[in-house]
Design a protein around this nucleic acid. Structure first.
Lengths: 198, 198
DNA sequence: ACTTGCAATTTGACGCTGTCAAGTTATGTG
DNA sequence: CACATAACTTGACAGCGTCAAATTGCAAGT
């Protein structure tokens, strides 16, 4: 028998390894393919090891979503860096939003796809805005007396999130998908021109 | 020659019963709780009976989503009936959109939550627009030379779909949820006033 | 009326899943 | 070095989707 010489992960290393394994599995197998046992196997530990680092599968998903949100924030920031003006910056963030969803669809679905009863378990790890703060700052220059920040943020976020979600679905927005992706995106985001200017 | 739709012999239409059972289970147990075996049990048949009416679990989900889309369309039509003008009609449809998502969150998630590899299996049942046609007609009065129909429809659909999705998530749009639901909805949908008027 | 055919359904099995209980091992501290 | 404790393994259990084979029951053919 080959006793594996693998030395046990110590303090906290396994937690990060399991999260990374989960992200890899999401990328290759989709959201349905994300499994506690597969994460454990990929991290080189037994099927019950994750239980000591996460509160079950929901807890692991919450931790993956939390890490994904930080990647998401970085992607949006990178996409909006070097924008010429405030409007270009806002659209850059939306571009990063869509590109992230397209590049990591399963992770994106996981991040925004929790059911209500799961939220209680993972909300502690998600509620420190992370990504929301980026959007809020990009919206700030366009706040007016008759357009308070929460409303404007909700309009912007709803538009880009809905577009990204429907884009991922593939089954909807068919006529739009006939256009080149870049052109369709820009024309839809042109809605901001009217929403945001006086 | 005429191969009419199969009429089950023992009980009534098992196919319809399974779909209704699925919708009931979605309502009570959520999307995760939707199971082939539970649908079969609730319909009073054995765990393998559904296999003869649907192509596995994905097929059943597709059929449920298909039926859900017709309910969805009816809800939007009902919510927009008797609108004073074109804009009120558009907003009424959006109201119906959100209310449906809030009333049947798990069914709503199922309808829009298929993964890409699942779409091939169920696309045949979903692609006959059903709900999209309602939105398209509501958008038609606002089409302009510089705002072709597919773009406008994508803008409207993205906004209301993103809002409904983020609303269901509960974990996002926190500041907005502090407002009364009706007021928040109306203020967000006020974006249409600017997007749509010349 | 009786047989035959066939579709619907059941039964049973398989491997996979999440989770729990108990046992084992390694680590860090006195 | 001894030992307490956290980390990890092992094993078991019920529930899941799916397949194969056996069974049932209606409908038509003769």
């Amino acid at each position: 028998m080959d006793h594996s010489p693998t030395k046990p992960h110590h303090h906290g290393a396994l937690r990060a390894a399991l999260i990374q394994a989960g992200i890899d599995i999401l990328q290759s197998d989709g959201l349905q393919g994300l499994t506690l046992r597969k994460c454990a196997a990929r991290a080189g530990v037994s099927h019950a090891a994750p239980a000591h680092h996460f509160d079950g599968l929901v807890g692991l998903k919450g931790a993956i979503a939390h890490h994904g949100l930080s990647l998401f924030r970085d992607a949006m920031l990178a996409a909006s860096a070097g924008a010429a003006d405030d409007l270009a910056q806002l659209k850059g963030i939306c571009r990063g939003y869509l590109d992230f969803a397209a590049a990591q669809p399963a992770l994106f679905r996981l991040m925004f796809g929790f059911e209500k009863h799961e939220h209680r378990k993972v909300s502690v790890e998600l509620d420190d805005d992370l990504a929301y703060e980026v959007l809020r700052q990009a919206c700030a220059p366009f706040v007016r007396d008759d357009l308070p920040a929460p409303i404007l943020e909700a309009q912007v976020w709803s538009l880009i999130h809905g577009y990204a979600t429907l884009y991922l679905s593939g089954n909807f927005l068919r006529e739009l998908h006939a256009l080149p992706q870049q052109q369709a995106f820009e024309q839809v985001m042109a809605a901001f021109d009217r929403m945001v200017t006086r």
